[in-house]
Amino acid sequence: MEQVAAKSEVIEKLRKDILSLQGFRVPTDSQKVHFGLGPIEAAFPNGVFPTGAVHEFLSDNTENAAATTGFMAGLLSRTMQRGGFCVWLSSKRTVFPAALKFFGVEPERVIFIDVRNEKDLLWMVEEALKCQALAAVVGELQEVNLTESRRLQLAVEQSRVTGLLHRHNPRNANTIAAVSRWKISSLPSNPGEDLPGMGFYRWHVELLKVRNGEPGSWQVQWISGHFEHILKPEIVVPEINLLQTA
């Protein structure tokens, strides 16, 4: 019996070693960033949302792109809470800087880089990921292949910058070297019993791929500056007669 326990202990230790070899470091308490994602964080190795890694977000239409941007902004607010700048690179930018404040991001701490050329954009994302002074990098890249994403991953391993890649309508959703793949879509908000108007932003969060973790899907809403996990998926019955009058 004792032998079995010792064995499982060894296996546990080896598993941790492998994780650290793969670049998953357990953050110390001072480095730890609380994302407040609840059960979603448990899907990641060691039960922490990995910062200093590249995350991939997929979206297929503009509505979902907006939801993804909102979710990413929520994550950004956590990575930037200790100060620092974020670089937001895109080729067709529609993000409204003033709206980032609703997700807890100081819009003046975001530097937007607008380039037409996708090749330049990829190079710039890599350069930005190499810069240790940044808190986070958001790249709105459409196409990126495995080799290119490996370079991004290598840059991040050196600099420990958190990278969020938003791929809107990619030609094919090929696998890239990212720590996770997310898909965020909007859900009807629930303003509560018989209340008119729009409620809190609510999203269906799908974690399609996680390296060394458990994929899954959850419902999350953004309430006054933090994520809130919704336990039971409720069926929202839209009622047109609840429209608010002026």
Binding site: V87, E108, F112, V115, N117, M124, C131
Partner: peptide
């Protein structure tokens, strides 16, 4: 360091690509 990064990016794609809003 960020200013140097921006210089590198600007050197590649030309001036006027970086924006910050108030």
């Amino acid at each position: 360091e960020i200013a140097e990064l921006l210089d590198r990016l600007t050197a590649r794609a030309g001036a006027g690509i970086a924006h910050r809003y108030l």
